[in-house]
Nucleic acid binder design. Structure first.
Length: 412
RNA sequence: GGAGAGGUGUCCGAGUGGUUGAUGGUGCCGCUCUCGAAAAGCGGUCUCCGCGCAAGCGGAGCGUGGGUUCGAAUCCCACCCUCUCCGCCA
């Protein structure tokens, strides 16, 4: 959520951001309601002031009191209505991109800012992971479909083991080497958490939801982590806070119907280790770079070639003001796989969740800045490992850092 | 799910219709005292909204949302959460 004052004072800046994102958020309507709201609050406060004075005179002024009550109630309802509308619209306005975010509308306009390693050349014809997975009997697509339908699969034996090894490896690396605290959050959260993280109201179509209890299934650990300190004023000395969390992630993938239906690249359920930071505003730019490096480090330790892309405005997600993607090359399916997306959200999420800190002991509380990044997404990295480390006989060599976690040097 | 108890400021804990943002203690900050520290004393110390360049002025907030009243932390209704016991269960 943006500061209403910023919208009030820089309407053109906000409108440009909305337009560049191909969004249609109603900025003018927000401005109109804001004016309306302030006018009514002025009136209301004056009436309440009078009520206070009148009520002190006890029985003497009951008649005036009754009239005031009616007037106040009417105005209160009006203000409440306007407030509700304003709030609803405010929640629809996306974050304003940072100045160094390139213009553009799709993948083609993203800018590759760095690369690491050489895309692997195999001396034989690379097989896609779905072929390798079935041959090795570590991914069972048929039974996944039998249990839950399309976009589900079952990991078996060393497949399940490899995934578990990766999760543990990621968490160990981030907690022991990068300074993150491990969190195990709920996978289902309240509606207000979805709103806080910026998933609702906009992305409702893509979220699984239990209507009876109004629980919402997380599509990323970013959601519970964003809400971890909801309505808190954090002591300045506790910042920055670095958290990492492993969770399952659930996504309806309605927007991507028919896309990536083969293999394990895009399922309704997948696992991910997420990195999340609460920081002071002056440090958030540096923190984004550090976050990116922490995610890159995982790829490097796994020996996977990758490129880092700075996303253009059209590709930056609703709550973010700047994002980098990490794409890993995978020779089997022959594509760059997005294994991580690292974003800075400024105070956008902190406003929605009301997370603040006090810069100085007596100072007024200020909103913190938040950042998030995958570290990393499991299915994509599984694909990359299987396809990059495949051998001519169809077996898969286990990257050295993973061997102690997997308990084997080769999956065959 | 059933029965009971309870939700007030950093925390503890008063307050059951009328200057109560809210007694008191505690914590925190400043000052006094001291060679220094402790103790003691004095003062300050919540958040949000509106108006204002600012100083400041006004409004709102006692789990949440409604209601009664000239006036509600205090009365009424609904819901949420915590604790204890019972039931059920990984």
């Amino acid at each position: 959520m943006l500061d209403i004052k910023i919208i009030r004072e820089n309407p053109d800046l906000v409108k440009k951001a909305v337009k560049d994102r191909n969004d249609s958020a109603p900025v003018d309507e927000v401005l109109r309601l804001d004016t309306e709201r302030r006018r009514n609050i002025g009136k209301l406060d004056a009436l309440r002031q009078e009520r206070k004075a009148v009520s002190k005179e006890r029985e003497k002024a009951q008649e005036r009191g009754r009239a005031l009550r009616a007037e106040i109630q009417e105005l209160e309802e009006e203000v409440k209505k306007i407030d509700g509308q304003l709030q609803e619209l405010l929640l629809q306005i996306p974050n304003i991109p940072q100045p160094d975010v390139p213009t553009g509308k799709d993948d083609c306009d993203n800018v590759t800012v760095s690369t690491w390693g050489e895309p692997r050349q195999l001396s034989f014809e690379a097989k896609p992971h779905w072929t390798l997975g079935e041959k090795l009997n570590i991914i069972d697509f048929e039974r996944g479909v039998k249990l839950s339908g399309s976009r589900f699969y079952v990991l078996k034996g060393m497949g399940a083991r490899l995934q578990r090894a990766l999760i543990t490896f990621f968490l160990d690396l981030h907690t022991q080497k990068h300074g993150y605290q491990e969190i195990y959050p709920p996978y289902m959260v309240k509606r207000e958490c979805m709103v806080g993280a910026g998933q609702l109201p906009k992305l409702a179509d893509n979220i699984y939801h239990d209507a009876e209890e109004d629980y919402w299934f997380v599509g990323t650990a970013e959601i519970p982590l964003t809400n971890l300190h909801r309505d808190e004023i954090l002591p300045a000395e506790e910042l920055p806070l670095y958290y990492c969390a492993y969770t399952a992630c659930f996504r309806r993938e309605k927007m991507s119907a028919g896309k990536d239906t083969r293999g394990i690249k895009r399922g309704h359920q997948f696992d991910k280790v997420e990195l999340y930071k609460f920081v002071t505003p002056d440090t958030s730019n540096d923190e984004l770079e550090k976050l990116l490096h922490d995610a890159e480090d995982v790829c490097q330790k796994l020996g996977l070639a990758y490129r880092v892309r700075l996303l253009c405005i059209g590709e930056v997600s609703f709550a973010a003001n700047k994002s980098y993607d990490i794409d890993v090359w995978s020779p089997g399916c022959g594509e760059w796989l997005e294994v991580s997306s690292c974003s800075s959200c400024g105070d956008f999420q902190a406003r929605r969740t009301n997370v603040r800190y006090r810069p100085e002991p007596e100072a007024k509380p200020q909103f913190v800045h938040t950042l998030n990044g995958s570290g990393l997404a499991l299915p994509r990295i599984m694909i990359a490992i299987m396809e990059n480390y495949q051998q001519a006989d169809g077996s898969i060599a286990v990257p050295e850092v993973l061997q102690k976690y997997v308990g084997a040097k080769v999956i065959k």
